[in-house]
């Protein structure tokens, strides 16, 4: 509890941001909260369970389109957001059952390609999604300032929810089981962990709030198009954020998301044409000089883990 209180205080402070009356800051805050949702969500499957998922873009885009289509059909906005969460969760459950038996690179590729397929489907299904022309959302009949506040608070609430989810998972047997799976999946079965179930739950948790964030984003920007919401970078950025802060920890992804946002604003906004290269350089620095993330700097320096060759398969192969 002593560690929860400061976090709640910080969230409360951030929630008071609209008092400054600066809409630019509010936009940044909304972005930061959205990044936090994505990094924290990825953390469950990638950080705790150790599965290199590149599916975030798929969940985000699916949520964005679910929300946009429902709102276009006249569904009350918050309900559309909830529906987007559910759609992403359902999709992740089915997808997880299909691809979570894959290991390592095979899983990474499968999860990466899913977003591409959804992108193509969305682009082709013009009658439902507007195709490549994109989709406009109904305009809200409130002032611009009120909108800025509304979306900021909504996104912040979603981020807090995702943070709480991470905290609960980390302190629950689910988190313990996922850590076992990350370190030795074969042995996890032997100690009584239902590995399939745990992995699917982790995958669903990595999707549900991202779907919501996608829908919020759609409502916020009023217009979405397939390459925007299904971009591969949407899958890569949350991983970079989580690694930046410290993957597999609860606060790490949040810290990473904030740092990432600051860098994005300070460095890249002025150098638009080398935006991608700057991200690339950040990644290289991160991998070589900050392997444990920012939080890793404060922990006892750990010995590098032994090459993670799965012992069981080595045994079976002999």
């Amino acid at each position: 509890m002593t560690r929860v209180l400061p976090v709640v205080l910080v969230i409360a402070l951030v929630a008071a941001l609209p008092l400054l009356g600066d809409n630019y800051l509010l936009r940044l805050g909304t972005m930061g909260a959205m990044y936090a949702v994505m990094a924290l969500s990825w953390n469950v499957i990638g950080g705790f369970a150790g599965y290199p998922s590149f599916a975030t873009a798929a969940f985000f885009g699916l949520g964005a389109y679910t929300g946009a289509i429902l709102q276009g059909a006249g569904v009350y906005m918050p309900l559309a957001w909830v529906a987007a969460c559910l759609a992403a969760a359902l999709f992740a459950g089915l997808l997880g059952l299909a691809i979570l038996h894959l290991k390592g690179h095979y899983f990474a590729i499968a999860s990466l390609v899913v977003a591409e397929v959804l992108l193509e489907i969305t682009t082709s299904w013009t009658s439902l999604t507007g195709g490549g022309m994109g989709l406009n959302l109904p305009i809200l009949r409130i002032s611009v300032d009120a909108q800025a506040r509304l979306f900021f608070w909504a996104m912040l609430a979603l981020a807090s929810l995702t943070l709480a989810m991470n905290w609960i998972v980390a302190n629950h047997r689910l988190g313990f089981g996922l850590r076992c799976i990350r370190q030795n999946e074969d042995a996890s079965g032997m100690v009584g962990i239902n590995t399939t179930l745990y992995k699917v739950i982790a995958f669903i948790l990595s999707a549900v709030f991202v779907g919501g964030a996608g829908a919020l984003y759609a409502s916020w920007v009023f217009y979405i198009e397939p390459p925007d919401v299904f971009a591969t970078l949407t899958s890569v950025k949350p991983i970079v954020m989580a690694l930046l802060g410290g993957a597999g920890t609860v606060l790490g992804p949040v810290i990473g998301a904030v740092l990432f946002l600051v860098m994005e604003e300070l460095v890249w906004r002025n150098l638009l044409e080398i935006h991608a290269a700057a991200l690339g350089i950040l990644i290289v620095i991160l991998i070589f000089f900050l392997p444990g993330g920012v939080l890793g700097l404060f922990k006892r320096r750990r010995k590098p883990a032994a090459p993670s060759r799965p012992l069981a398969s080595a045994e079976a192969g002999r």
């Binding site: 370190q183 030795n184 042995a187 032997m190 032994a306 069981a312």
Partner: peptide
């Protein structure tokens, strides 16, 4: 039914 492995299988980081 419990078993041990010929090649030990701990959770190394725990």
């Amino acid at each position: 039914v419990a078993r041990t492995y010929q090649v030990v299988q701990p959770f190394p980081e725990m």
